[in-house]
Design a binder for these strands. Structure first.
Lengths: 190, 190
DNA sequence: CCATACTAATAGACCAGTCGTTATAATTTA
DNA sequence: TAAATTATAACGACTGGTCTATTAGTATGG
């Protein structure tokens, strides 16, 4: 087990990492306990409802990580478009650096489970909505109308999710780079 | 078995449909033979390399279906932006109509397998690139520069993939509707 | 200060079921 | 008759989940 972490946190962290890479069905509990070093008895002690409950915890953990990333980049930028471009550009660098393979934070899980697990689907849906709410808030602050702000938040979030998917499918940061380069030319008339 | 179809085609069609809904790992061969009515012996007769080979065939089948959709909508429109808006708007209606649940054509498969099956990853990657090539061609015809055309193709494709993911996660066509509504305001300065 | 008691946590063996795959027999088609 | 196709049973490996036994940790009582 990761000696620095408590067993429960080790499970959440390992599950989060593996689910990003291989999705929900693609990761077995045996993979998670093997990588985290936490015995199966402990897994069912902390997550008595099993895999779904662990996945929900992993989704919420990932949600928080992403929120911190987003807020950081918005705090450093003077307007939402700049912030968003910086964010996507940093993603492109991360995917392009050829280190450990990354994954889609929760997109893959959402795609797999939307028809099979309402619990997980709802966790993903609320995560997406929370991320979008941050974007929308920033657009609102920048003077966009309420309606435009929410629509733009959805649009830019979709752009991010799609861009990540293209990046990991092509094993390259270039799709995200192309998207980031296009961002300044979007919405120029507003 | 679907009496209208030859066994091989029935397998491809059923596999394609189920993979869209639940991804690659989420669908077992038993599901596919049960729904298609094709016996397991026939599956391994037509696809001796097993699940990966069937998935590759399903991906290529889906690729073609989407290409026909895209070309249809571009044939009916006078410029690429209109065509793209129409396309996304039609997607939003399909996802919003509350009939049989839809799925991401191959996005979910790509997200699951990019680290585990190079064969499938490459099939998804070439599919994405083929779709983008159609978009790029249309932008080129409309007078955009070669570089802008490819970047815009990637950007709009990412928008579609992300929009579909948001739609199926929220079980609603609204995310795609919001995206479609934003499209006319994008690129206004070009 | 130690002994006791109680609970939280750990450790895996184990379960029934399913996975993708293989093997082989039966049947149909040419 | 030969080949193509269908049908079914079975394989070992693995799945998520259950179970019991044991250990570690802590609070309490004398």
């Amino acid at each position: 087990m990761d000696k620095k972490l408590k067993p429960k946190d080790a499970l959440i962290e390992t599950a989060s990492r593996l689910f990003k890479l291989r999705g929900y069905c693609g990761v077995g509990l045996n993979d998670i306990i093997a990588e985290s070093g936490v015995p199966k008895g402990s897994l069912y002690h902390y997550f008595p409802e099993g895999k779904e409950q662990l996945a929900t915890a992993a989704i919420n953990y990932t949600k928080q990580l992403v929120i911190e990333d987003i807020q950081q980049v918005f705090a450093d930028a003077s307007n939402p478009l700049d912030a968003f471009q910086t964010y996507v550009y940093e993603l492109s660098k991360a995917f392009g650096e050829g280190g450990d393979p990354l994954g889609s934070p929760i997109g893959t899980i959402a795609g797999e489970t939307h028809t099979t697990s309402e619990t997980i689907r709802l966790a993903c849906d609320s995560t997406f909505k929370d991320w979008q709410a941050i974007y929308a808030e920033k657009f609102l602050e920048a003077g966009y109308s309420a309606q435009d702000s929410t629509s733009l938040a959805v649009t830019f979030h979709a752009l991010t999710e799609g861009g990540i998917l293209l990046a990991l499918t092509s094993k390259s940061g270039k799709p995200l780079e192309a998207i980031a380069n296009q961002i300044p030319f979007l919405l120029a008339q507003k």
